[in-house]
């Protein structure tokens, strides 16, 4: 700020306090800010606990959803050509043991509008009964109907006595 500008700014302030009306205005302005500030502080002091209170189950659910790995005991004994529904964290998921002895684990949440999909052993496809979406059961690729994206795929390890499913 140049010297001239500083002087000018100081001048306005002095004028303001000389002018009764302007002073009244600045007092009113101060009060407005003070009352507004107190109002915001109260709204925060009441709103924050209520927000946290309401969001407690959301936080718990998010914690559950954050799992990286799920162990499915005895899932290795799943018959060929059949599927098993399980929960990965909080989301429904699908473990399929194909007729050719290959395994795949996919999210069972349809990428269209979030319905839970089902494995159809007769057609070896995954179908969503809400809006008729179809997915390739070998890859999770969306093949017909409204789904815009393939189903999310998990990494799996088929072990002795269990199947371990991991976030890919």
């Amino acid at each position: 700020m140049s010297k001239k500008e500083t002087a000018a700014a100081a001048g306005t302030t002095a004028d303001e306090f000389e002018d009764e009306e302007a002073r009244e205005f600045s007092r009113r302005g101060f009060l407005k800010i003070a009352v507004g500030g107190a109002g915001v502080a109260y709204a925060g002091a009441i709103g924050y606990p209520i927000y946290r209170y309401l969001s407690t189950p959301v936080e718990k659910s998010a914690e559950l959803a954050a799992v990286k790995e799920v162990v499915l005991p005895n899932a290795d004994k799943l018959l060929k050509g059949s599927a098993l529904m399980f929960k990965f964290g909080v989301r429904p998921s699908l473990l399929i043991h194909h007729a050719d002895d290959s395994w795949i684990a996919l999210s069972a949440v349809c990428t269209h509008m979030g319905c839970t999909v089902a494995f159809n052993p007769a057609t070896a496809q995954i179908e969503c009964h809400c809006h008729g979406g179809k997915y390739d059961a070998k890859t999770g690729e969306n093949i017909s109907g409204p789904p815009p994206k393939p189903l999310k795929k998990f990494d799996i390890t088929v072990g002795q006595g269990s199947v371990t499913v991991r976030r890919a």
Binding site: P49, I50, R52, Y53, S55, T56, E59
Partner: peptide
């Protein structure tokens, strides 16, 4: 004892 601010409410 478990819900956030539940004691307060």
């Amino acid at each position: 004892y478990e819900t956030h601010f539940g004691w307060l409410i």
